[in-house]
């Protein structure tokens, strides 16, 4: 009822832990088994280790949070040696999330990750928290296409490109990435944002700005998933503030073939399980053979100015 084939990879359900919110899969095992999820997109990985941004890296907002972690990670070689074997031992689809400073770096990461245990490469061209690379690739259709093409030429795995919402036209970027050979899109990454401590007049985050996530961005995600999925032929993985089964259903109706869950787990560690269970119940209640029947099923209001 929930099993989904996405980019030729079998997901036992369409719910995936979003990169940066679930580490490399071990942290929540004490509460819910990793295998509850259909897939995991692992912490963003770079060629060399990164120590990330200076603290504070977290700020709360109404209905959400800002982070400016800055891609702290042990580097791709350490991921392959220390974390991938653990993920391989689990019945779960593994999405390796990569970030680089140049198209060549992205390509090298994709080559290194062309190994058993990695099912899909997610290309992060949208991290708002690093000065170099990431962000500027994601906001420029040409640069986004160049990174996508470089990764496609090097990768043996399906390639999903993660888009930033910090653009004027998500359609333009989505089309450029599709034209460059991407197998799928994932969106949205966080929205660039800022909070200021009015007592000190200083930004709360050590990095001054960060990325906004949580329910605050959910409606933006729904709109962008709808726009992007209508504009391209490749499948879309939706994310951004999803907390409940109803949220997951909504973004699937907007056009998402699968769904990533991020910050919601910080508030409720059982959120992924509740969402998976809720999707199952929804299928039963609505007589669906498979949840994929609802993907893109939104019925638009006729826009008639003569009302």
């Amino acid at each position: 009822m929930l099993s989904t084939t996405f980019l030729g990879v079998n997901f036992k359900n369409p719910i995936i832990a979003a990169s940066g919110t679930y580490g490399y899969g071990r942290e929540y095992e004490s509460i819910i088994p990793l295998e509850t999820l259909g897939g995991i997109s692992v912490k963003g990985t770079t060629l060399l280790p990164r120590s990330g941004n200076k603290p504070p890296r977290i700020a709360e907002t109404p209905s959400g949070m800002l982070n400016s972690v800055g891609l702290q990670n042990p580097g791709v070689d350490a991921f392959i040696k220390n974390d991938l074997p653990y993920l391989r031992s689990k019945d779960i689809a593994v999405i390796a999330n990569i970030s680089g400073n140049t198209p060549d770096e992205y390509a090298e990461l994709a080559r290194k990750l062309d190994i058993p245990g990695v099912d899909i490469i997610e290309v992060n061209i949208s991290c708002p928290n690093i000065r170099e690379g990431g962000k500027s690739f994601g906001a420029d259709p040409k640069a986004a296409g160049a990174v996508t093409a470089a990764v496609k030429a090097a990768a043996g795995k399906p390639v999903m490109v993660k888009l930033t919402p910090n653009v004027t036209s998500i359609v333009e970027i989505a089309k450029a990435v599709e034209a460059a050979g991407a197998d799928a899109l994932s969106l949205i990454n966080t929205l660039t944002a800022m909070r200021i401590d009015i007592k000190t007049k200083k930004p709360i985050l050590g990095n001054n700005t960060g990325g906004l996530s949580g329910p605050a961005i959910f409606p933006v995600a729904v709109r962008m998933v709808y726009e992007a999925s209508r504009a391209v032929k490749i499948p879309v993985c939706g994310m951004g503030g999803i907390e409940t089964p109803e949220d997951a259903i909504e973004i699937m109706m907007a056009g998402a073939a699968c769904v990533q869950i991020g910050a919601a787990i910080f508030r409720d560690a059982y959120a992924p399980k509740k969402i998976v269970d809720g999707l199952g119940e929804y299928c039963t209640e609505n007589g669906l053979k498979n949840i994929s029947e609802i993907v893109g099923s939104v019925k638009f209001n006729e826009r008639d100015n003569q009302w």
Partner: peptide
Amino acid sequence: RMACGVGACLGCT
């Protein structure tokens, strides 16, 4: 300042 509290998000390094 923390988010997850369990080591998953790297917010409190």
